[in-house]
Amino acid sequence: MADDRKTEASAEDENATVRTSRRNFLKFSASGAAAAAVASWIPGQIASAREAEPVTDDALPGQGERRIKLIVNGQEHTLNVPVNAVLLDVLRDRLNLTGTKKGCDLGQCGACTLLVNDVAINSCLSLAVQHEGEKITTLEGLARDGELHPVQQAFLEEDAYQCGYCTPGQIMSAVALLNDPNLPKDDASVREAMSGNICRCAAYKNILAAVQSARSRMGGLA
């Protein structure tokens, strides 16, 4: 990534468009329209507006379904879901919240990490019906008023990714650990606490730097 950055800097004029769209992609993934933002032909505000609307199923639940209220990023949705529907899939497929990634789907990689009642969990190992009425926070719920969360900002500045696929899970784990009073602040403890998030590109060094940089940014909180 260091090489990439050099290339970008030295060829700034020619690559201005490409660079902008990459930055926009990162901002949009943070603010809630990851998949939509890849295609620049969907204006950001439309994608964001769509995501903020509550989803309500009017029909009665079908056979094998259950009607549940899911509170995601402060928005309440009323959905009919199959009882075996996994939280991760409901967020991605029903609510279009594709910031939470599906990696191994077996609780081994951490790509699907999100917060339930402020606690980090693997959303691939939860049924949606288990989380009725609980406070669910996904990557899309971190930014406030167009400002990135300090952890998102730190990942951006420390270049804490290559392909970016594990990044949402890494960020959610980082947010949880920085708010956990039980966890020591040294590098080894951060590595241990983040070990449930696998990065196939092995950006671990920069991820650690981003977490510690976000800790300073968050000041008293962390």
Binding site: V119, A120, I121, N122, A193, S195
Partner: peptide
């Protein structure tokens, strides 16, 4: 044992 996320659950 396991990872932070798994221990939480």
């Amino acid at each position: 044992g396991a990872s932070t996320q798994l221990r939480n659950k």
